[in-house]
Design a protein around this nucleic acid. Structure first.
Length: 160
DNA sequence: GCCAACGTTGGC
DNA sequence: GCCAACGTTGGC
C-alpha cells in the first residue's frame, strides 16, 4: 500500500461518442460508473484517492489518445447501474453487497491537441506506459508520475 | 482445476 | 469490418 504522500496517477478510457471529454467539461464532474472489469474496479475501490491525477483517454476515436486531464474527486461509490434494468444490471449484486463501484472524476483541463496513441508509442520517455502495450484493454490503469507529467507537457504543446 | 467456447475491447 | 488479445463462463 502506498503512503499518503505518494503521488498517484491514472489513465481512464472513454469513448468520445459515449462520454468524451466534452461531456466531462460540460458536467464538471461525473461518477465513473458502468465499469464491469474487476481489475479496474479494484483500482477505483481500493487504490485511488481523492486528488489523484487522471489522464483522460479517448478510445475508438480518430485519433485515439489522451485528450485532457481530470482528477479523482471522491472515494469509491456504489455504481447504481448494477441495480437498474438494462445493459449494466447485475443479478448477483445486491444493495447489501454491491459488486461494482466507481469514483467521481472532475474535469481539469482539455488539451489543445490530443496526444495521440502514435505519439505515445513513439516517445522514448514513455517506455513502460501501459496503454501503449499491445493487448492492453484495461479501462482504468495506473500511470507513473513521470509519464503523466510528460504527457501533460506534450498536451500543452511543449516537450517535443 | 483445466480449457474450449464465447463475448468484448479497441487498434487498424 | 477485421481480428488479436484478453476476460469470463461453463462443461467436465
Amino acid at each position: 500500500m502506498a503512503s499518503k504522500s505518494t503521488r498517484q496517477c491514472w489513465l481512464m478510457k472513454s469513448e468520445p461518442d459515449v462520454y468524451g471529454i466534452d461531456a466531462l467539461e460540460r458536467d464538471g464532474e461525473t461518477l465513473w460508473d458502468k465499469v464491469r472489469n474487476y481489475q479496474a474496479r479494484n483500482f477505483m475501490r481500493d487504490t485511488m484517492r481523492v486528488g489523484d491525477d487522471v489522464l483522460y483517454y479517448h478510445s475508438n476515436a480518430e485519433p485515439s489518445g489522451v485528450v485532457g486531464l481530470a482528477r479523482v474527486a471522491s472515494g469509491p461509490e456504489v455504481d447504481p447501474t448494477q441495480f437498474e434494468k438494462g445493459e449494466y444490471f447485475d443479478p448477483l449484486a445486491s444493495r447489501a453487497e454491491p459488486r461494482w463501484f466507481g469514483v467521481r472524476v472532475r474535469f481539469v483541463e482539455r488539451f489543445r491537441q490530443p496526444v495521440t496513441l502514435a505519439q505515445l508509442k513513439a516517445d522514448k520517455a514513455l517506455k513502460g506506459l501501459l496503454v501503449i502495450q499491445r493487448g492492453q484493454r484495461l479501462s482504468v490503469q495506473p500511470v507513473e508520475p513521470k509519464h503523466f507529467d510528460r504527457i501533460a507537457a506534450l498536451g500543452r504543446g511543449g516537450g517535443k
